[in-house]
Design a protein around this nucleic acid. Structure first.
Length: 121
RNA sequence: CAGGCUGAUCGGGUGAUCGCGGCUUUGCGCAAGCAAGGCUGAGGAAAGUCCGCACUCCACAGAGCAAGACGCCGGGGAAACUCCCGGGGCGGGGCAACCUGCCGGAUCGGGCCACAGAAACAUACCGCCAGCCUGGUUCUCCCUGCGGGAACCACUGGCAAGGGUGAAAUGGUGGUGUAAGAGACCACCGGUGUCCGCAGUAAUGCGGCAGCCAGGCAACCCCCGUCUGGAGCAAAGCCAAGCAGGAACGAAGCCCUUGUGGCUGGGAGGCUGCUCGCUUCCGCAAGUUCCGGGUAGGCUGCAUGAGCGGAUUGGCAACAAACCGCCUAGAGAGAUGAUCGCCUCCUGCUGAAUCGUCCUUUGGAUACCCCUGCAGGGACAGAAUGCGGCUUAUAGAUCAGCCUGAGCC
RNA sequence: CGGGGCGUGGCUCAGCCCGGCUAGAGCACACGGUUCGGGACCGUGAGGUCGGCGGUUCAAAUCCGCCCGCCCCGA
């Protein structure tokens, strides 16, 4: 995942986490907020509750890997945060990918196969 | 062969596809940038942040006190250390190899030592012995008296042998001795030492002598010796952007030659714990404190270093010297991931075959190694200014040396 | 990077400074009493590796060292 598509500023994180809409799953939490920018920016976070430094970094890397395939299929104009939860450490990659897809579907940010926006919430 | 001890090394390898950070080359473009390629990209502990440094900023007459750290001895190593090396001493553990110790001082002084016990550090509760100057009670004798004797209690004095306890009662055994006793004395043993001699640089050891009087805790205060400026890469420097100030505290006299003067006194800051002392500033301010406002960006610091590898020499070693070769992460919500193989190691299951063994012997059953296949597992753990140590976590593998026990030759 | 604090029955805390005594208090829990029954009340009782491992000491929740977990503060 290229750096230019990432959410990097600390203030951006604060803004999205305070004002964004969140969607929860046992493995992770998705938070989205409409932005003035035309592109999509994604931030990945793992708190102390996830585990040691190794486990936190690994969780963030796997979440970024999930985004690789999904990034071109997302509706532009959103800031997104993926928040790792504890069970992600022992989860298989397939189930993480399924969880991420499901959450984006629920948020209505996925462009469907025929190019029409998914159902907006 | 079994068990153990010590030291050292390693910490899975390799390939494909899709992706990431850094550097760089080429092409295109005025430029921002885009595309393609190449190189490179976590550890032995990167961890805990417990020490020591480098580096940066602040401070830098000095003295005293306080506070903190360290603590067997004498060498060596290292930039330095409370670290490391090899040697020695003492205490503890182990049959041994070996491991381990915050290992200075208990006559400077203070404090504490629960329960039990007479008593917890120097005494005397019970007790033992003596005395009759003294008193009381009881018994007894005959010379019937303010008489003698005996026992007990009190009293006075001596003693510390014996006494249930306790972690600890400072000597033990045997003898001499005595009114009773006691290191009071003797022999042996054990312990102690501002003592003497010898050995040793020293810690200390051995012997003598003295004396047995005075236990433990300084990881309680303390004493002795040595050492110690403060802060930390969010240090620090530069650039850009942006804002709004306000309040409180603080406030003297004299002289004449009226000044940017002198004297005395005062206020504030610094010496980053305090005091003295020194020093700088101040004249209606200096400065301190509080409230409020702005910023939360970029670059440098930032990786050629007490660097890594190799063989040589010196050294028991830690390590050092010179030689050759190498350049080896620099992120900033923080770069190594995902998927699929192959090999390798371990564990379990399965199948086949051979030797052997057993049985109810044209047959059947079966352990280990090896081989086939399948499944599972491969630790602890992620650089954030750098380095040297310490501590802690760590599946498993390999090598070398040593110790104990058993068997065989 | 630097500094500080906490960990004790199920919960909230004492005790630690200056070592020893049955580790104590409140709530909660169990049983019994009281009541027609419940609550309240009374009585009795159970429940503790004092975060872990070492060390000092005759003796450690307490003193010392190293770890583990949690929380807070400053730049």
């Amino acid at each position: 995942m290229k750096r230019e598509f990432r959410l990097r500023r600390s203030t951006d994180f604060k803004r999205v986490r305070r004002s964004g809409k969140s969607y929860a799953h046992p493995l992770l939490v998705l938070i989205v907020l409409a932005s003035t920018d035309s592109g999509v920016r994604v931030g990945v976070a793992a708190g102390r509750s996830v585990g040691s430094a190794v486990e936190r970094n690994r969780a963030k890397r796997r979440l970024r890997a999930c985004m690789d395939g999904l990034l071109p299929r997302l509706t532009p104009g959103w800031d997104i945060i993926l928040l790792a939860r504890k069970p992600i450490v022992s989860a298989k990659f397939d189930s993480i990918q399924a969880a991420v897809s499901e959450l984006f579907n629920r948020a209505g940010l996925l462009i469907t196969q025929d190019g029409v926006h998914g159902t907006s919430q």
